[in-house]
Design a binder for these strands. Structure first.
Length: 134
RNA sequence: ACAGGCAGCCGGAUAGCUGCGCCUAGGAAAGUAAGAUCCAUAGGUGAGGAAAGUCCGGGCUUCAAGGGAACAAGGCACCAGAUAACGUCUGGCUGGAGCAAUCCAAGUGACAGUGCCACAGAAAACAUACCGCCUGAUAACAUCUGUCAUCAGGUAAGGUUGAAAAGGCGGGGUAAGAGCCCACCGCGGAUGGAGCAAUUCGUUCGGCAAGGUAAACCAUGCCCGAAGCAAGACCAAGUUAGGAGAGCUUUGCAAAAAGUUAUACGGAGGGUUCCCACUCUACUCCAGAGGUAGGUCGCGCCGAGCUGUUUAGCGAUAAACAGCCAAGAUGAAUAGCUAUCGCCUGCUUUUGGCAGGUACAAAACCCGGCUUAUAGGCUGCCUGAUUUU
RNA sequence: GGAUGAGUGGCAGAGAGGCUGAAUGCGCGCGACUCGAAAUCGUGUAUACGGGGAGACCCGUAUCGGGGGUUCAAAUCCCUCCUCAUCCG
């Protein structure tokens, strides 16, 4: 499987608008199908905003995300999809095992949502009542 | 020992596995608009003292290129030196802080001119007379060294206000007072010695000259063209509509029309203005179209370069010699895991063990500074009042 | 990466050395009008520390993004740091 990195702003926006997202404590993952169905390679992008900290903190967060992708994606990611990983406040400092676990969880959940787009919307509506306890 | 001051340095170390950027060499395939690209290949190399803030000064690039001058705006400001340059650095002077080592200072000019100094206070810049003090006159009371009121004058000692009130202190002097006079200190002029100079040490004269503010305008001296690597150069693909002005050619008596930007007398344009000399462009201005998902260079093997030694100098620094070539990305390379050791804190306990921590922060064209952030540690020199042994 | 501009009560926004703790508007609190509300009118409204008072409240000091300087005196002038916003081929 080939893993390429996103380099254009347009691609990042497309993944955010057309895809699904899952948020964990250590990382936020967005995913969307590729533009053309024939394109079977996997694209990944990394975003670390100024909110995270100064330049060296952002760099470390991005490098850890890149390491996670090398470690996890060959096993868990699907072909023909675009993923965007966004760093959160603890990304640069949390234990590696936690970051790995969160990413795998996020990927699995995303694939559920993407494979059943019609049902996915129903699930989102169905979830809130579980939180409300009378 | 303790406390303090100054100068300089370090910014965790080692090993293993997986993985990344760039360079060189080698190999492979494909021919692209231009540029490319790929590899279980090999070797090399890969973030700081502040890489930061962008506060100064340069290199470099564009404005066609070069020289000179001026206005405006801005900057700097004790003296001498260092430097490519600086608002930086070094040495000194003056003033201030400290027992001292040492540290701090935008440190020119307020007799060129203008402005401002609220409130309070009698008076705030041509000083002034509110209270007070003193003298005289008049009236009253008292009764003879008086008291009080009013008027006229003298006064800058004392009081009040304020950030600031016209040299300070002591003595003489006087009706009361006053640099009115004298000594010392301060201040100003002249002059001699030391020093490149800022300045300093004397000598002598003057009775004293009239506040503060220039980080208010300003004056004096010196500096300064503007914009910035998203500067800019080249390559590739694609799109578009003209109008006004200027020059030239042709037709025409002229008005005007058509064509054109080859030649260049004049004219125009090429950095705010002006001048000089030389030169360039055919166009200049307005409007319109496309594009802002292209590529290469600029961009780091040669520099105000780095390291070391010697010499000159108090020093900043300079010169000579020897050695070295050390990131170059562009949604942007250093990460993940493991082991051992170092340092710090806490607990338990004294062979040690356990837990946690190990700063500030990462190149983006490149240098010289300044400023700000910074765990912990090392080295050298110096000082100590009434610290301790 | 580079270049500009701004920061003042809860919000917007004047003030550009002294009478400004701070104009003006919005908001908020209290009161009046009303049966009640709106509108209108009146009045008040920043924070911290210290002191006084039985209490309502009063007095003093400091604060105009933070720190330092010039000045008798700074929101205002100068230096420096922080934060926010805008622009670039």
């Amino acid at each position: 499987m080939e893993i390429c990195t996103l380099k254009k702003r347009k691609d990042f926006i497309r993944a955010a608008e057309k895809g699904q997202k899952v948020c964990t404590h250590s990382v936020l993952v967005q995913a969307a199908p590729n533009k053309s169905a024939e394109d079977l390679s996997t694209y990944t992008g990394f975003t670390t905003t100024k909110k995270l900290g100064k330049a060296n903190v952002r760099n470390r967060a991005r490098r850890r995300l890149r390491a996670i992708v090398r470690d996890v994606f060959p096993q868990f990611a699907l072909e023909g999809y675009t993923y965007v990983l966004i760093g959160r406040f603890i990304t640069a400092e949390c234990p590696y095992a936690m970051l790995r676990k969160d990413t795998i969880y996020a990927l699995k959940k995303l694939h559920k949502l993407l494979n059943a787009p019609d049902k996915g919307s129903e699930n989102e509506v169905a979830v809130p009542p579980a939180d409300c306890q009378h």
